[in-house]
Simulated assay, not measured.
Amino acid sequence: MSELSHINQQGDAHMVDVSNKQDTVRQAIAESRVQMKPETLALILSGQHHKGDVFATARIAGIMAAKKTADLIPLCHPLALSKVEVDISVDQASSEVRIEALCKLAGKTGVEMEALTAASVAALTIYDMCKAVQKDMVISHTRLLEKTGGKSGHFKGQYD
């Protein structure tokens, strides 16, 4: 396992200096899932939810969250994202909502945290909008699926 990059030689947390790194096109894709009762999912899909379009709100929340990642995660660099995309799909058989977030830029540091933040906040937004109907929804599988660019190159998770 490689050394932790956010810990200096004295063992203190610090922001990594990326000033000497080359700009490269970097992209990351992350996901999060929300498990709910079929009745809750049906309410969302029918458009009858009293709070409005749950998925549209979650998409916007995810995009906004990606842009605010450096404000939320203490040692993240503020990034000029060139693309943030949040896609939501539904598996009615398992009554599960899957959120996939893609973040992209040309820069000196990766966008994994932005993608993970986008997916997480979109899932939290779905929970928030539906908690009056169902409080025992489960948010899970928040994980990095793939990243490209930078010195460490291409990563693709071996997931289901």
Rank of each mutant, 00 (worst) to 15 (best):
H49T: 05
Q27H: 09
H49E: 08
D23F: 02
Q35I: 13
K37G: 11
V34S: 01
K37Q: 15
D23W: 01
A42K: 12
A42H: 02
K51N: 04
L45C: 07
K37P: 08
L41G: 14
S32L: 12
S46T: 04
E31K: 02
Q48R: 13
H49V: 01
H50G: 04
A30I: 12
R26E: 06
H50E: 15
L41V: 08
E31S: 14
S32C: 15
R33D: 08
H50V: 09
L41C: 12
T24W: 05
H50C: 06
E31F: 00
M36F: 12
S32F: 12
L45N: 12
A42Q: 14
T40K: 07
E39Y: 06
V34H: 03
L41M: 13
T40E: 07
M36N: 05
S46F: 01
M36D: 13
R26A: 01
K51P: 02
T24G: 04
E31R: 10
R33Y: 08
Q35R: 04
K51G: 01
H49S: 10
E31L: 08
Q27V: 13
V25L: 00
A28V: 10
D53R: 12
I29D: 01
V54D: 11
M36H: 06
G52Y: 04
G47Q: 11
A28M: 10
A28Q: 03
Q27M: 15
E39M: 00
E39K: 13
V54T: 09
V54K: 05
V25T: 00
R33I: 02
L45Y: 01
V25G: 06
S32P: 10
E39P: 05
T24D: 02
V25H: 00
L41N: 14
K37A: 15
K37N: 08
Q48I: 01
D23N: 15
D53L: 06
T40G: 09
Q35D: 14
H50I: 12
A30E: 11
K51W: 01
T40I: 00
L45F: 04
Q27S: 10
M36R: 04
H49L: 00
Q35A: 06
I29V: 15
V34T: 04
Q35L: 15
K51F: 03
A42F: 01
T40S: 15
Q48S: 09
L45A: 05
Q48K: 15
G47H: 13
K51I: 02
V54C: 10
R26H: 03
I29F: 03
G47Y: 11
I44C: 15
L43F: 02
T40D: 08
Q27G: 05
T24F: 01
A30H: 09
H49I: 02
A30T: 06
H50L: 05
G52N: 05
K51D: 04
I29G: 06
E39H: 13
H49G: 07
L45V: 08
S32T: 14
T40P: 11
D23H: 11
D53V: 07
G47A: 11
D53M: 10
Q35P: 05
Q27R: 14
V25E: 00
A30P: 11
V34C: 07
